[in-house]
Simulated assay, not measured.
Amino acid sequence: MQLRLIQSELLTENSQIKQVYLQTYVAANGGQLDYQAGDWLLMHAINPEVLVAEILNQLGLQGDETVQLRRIGEVSAEQALSQYLEITQLNPAILNKMQRQLQIGEWDGRQAMMDYAYGRDIVDLLNAFPQMAELGAEFLSWLSPLAPRYYSIASAESQQVKILFKALNYHYAGRDKSGVASNYLAQLPIDAVVEGELKTNPLFKLPENPQTPIIMVGAGTGLAPFLGFIEARQRQQAGENILFFGETEKANACLCCEQLQAAQAKGDLQLFMEFSRDQAEKRYVQDAMREQKALLWQKWQDGAVLYVCGSQKTLAPAVERLWQLWLAEEGGSEQEATQIWQSLRKERRIQFDVY
């Protein structure tokens, strides 16, 4: 499906630590977009030219050599590296294949391969193992297909679709790295046409009864699906909406604050925000939740559904620990609280969209 970019806003223009964008797309053919709040938009990106050129150079290729790609057919080596192959991430499966077939590398098991691959790309691999570059064009058959990137949809309007994302840039293994899709999207000009795909997320859906209260917990770009939830619930004239949102700095990273505060002013949202770097002692969304236990527990007793979107390493376990503590405090052992939590997940009263 082709999408046309009609708006791209850098929300963190004054931030020194992150670049977060809110982008709006419409169907390039002018048609309707069929999705629900909570679904994903899969975006197909193009790899950075500088990285493609570096790999071609290391492999001793000009770029016009013909290669055969599964499900694609014959393309040039440059096209393969630019459009169809994963080069900004190192798939641990490549290391396993190297070790099994060529006896290259000394990784002790799958976890060691995963640890080595983390944060590295294909240039790092060729730098560390120049014998792989001797394969020339054959090396391209070792690479994984370039997968589309998933973005939680930040809207509910069928005429358009919005995404909220951070342009990923980091330094690792002695080189500057960047996320392929996020930086590709960030650099798009208005009216650019890109390939995308709407994909349902059956595990992150609003309750069938619009009067059911909802509790939303998000940090950073984990705010995205909740923007869609709020928009959809406002149209439904739905029940109570409570949002706990966390970021780094209010002055420079208060994502979509005007939209959130407008919903709050209309009485459509109870909003609690925490900014971790705005005081000496860092505060996070779970701190605000802890202070609002009475409110949250009352809404929970009223049948509220809990939604969590954000990091699976930090936000998700923090919310899980807090909620299980409350379940234990309200009656039962820690083991019983864990069992109840797992049961609630299965019943969809607690829903996670984490990354």
Rank of each mutant, 00 (worst) to 15 (best):
Q89K: 12
L102K: 15
Y35E: 07
S76P: 04
Q160F: 07
D268V: 13
E197F: 05
A53G: 03
S141N: 13
T66R: 15
L3C: 05
K162T: 07
V354F: 04
F139H: 01
V26K: 10
L295N: 12
G239C: 08
G109Q: 09
R149C: 03
G105V: 02
P317C: 06
Q58L: 15
V67W: 01
A112W: 01
K250S: 03
G310K: 01
Y21C: 05
C256E: 14
D287H: 12
L140W: 00
A173D: 09
I87G: 02
L295T: 15
T200M: 11
M216G: 08
G246H: 00
V180F: 01
I190C: 06
L255N: 13
A219Q: 10
K282Y: 07
Q292R: 14
N91S: 09
G63R: 08
E9S: 11
L11K: 15
N241V: 15
K162E: 14
N29M: 08
E334G: 09
A167G: 09
I104V: 11
D34M: 06
G331Q: 07
L271I: 06
L69V: 07
R175W: 05
K250T: 02
G222V: 11
V193I: 12
E49A: 07
L90I: 00
R4T: 11
S182T: 11
E54R: 06
L125F: 00
M113E: 01
Q279T: 13
Q261P: 00
K97W: 12
G30E: 06
L198R: 04
Y170S: 00
G179I: 01
E78G: 01
D302T: 14
D64V: 10
A117C: 02
M216F: 11
R349K: 13
R110I: 15
L322S: 05
F352Q: 10
A251M: 11
A251D: 09
Q36A: 07
G228W: 12
Y116R: 15
L126I: 05
G31P: 05
D353C: 07
G218D: 10
L206I: 10
S343A: 13
S333E: 09
L33T: 04
T24Q: 11
E334S: 12
A181W: 01
D115W: 03
F275P: 00
A156E: 07
L223Q: 14
P225M: 13
R175Q: 13
F272V: 15
Q32T: 10
K177M: 08
L295F: 08
R235P: 02
Q23L: 01
V26S: 02
L164D: 11
E330T: 12
E281P: 00
M1E: 13
W297E: 14
W142S: 12
E240W: 12
P130S: 09
I104Y: 04
C309H: 13
R348L: 15
L11W: 13
A192G: 05
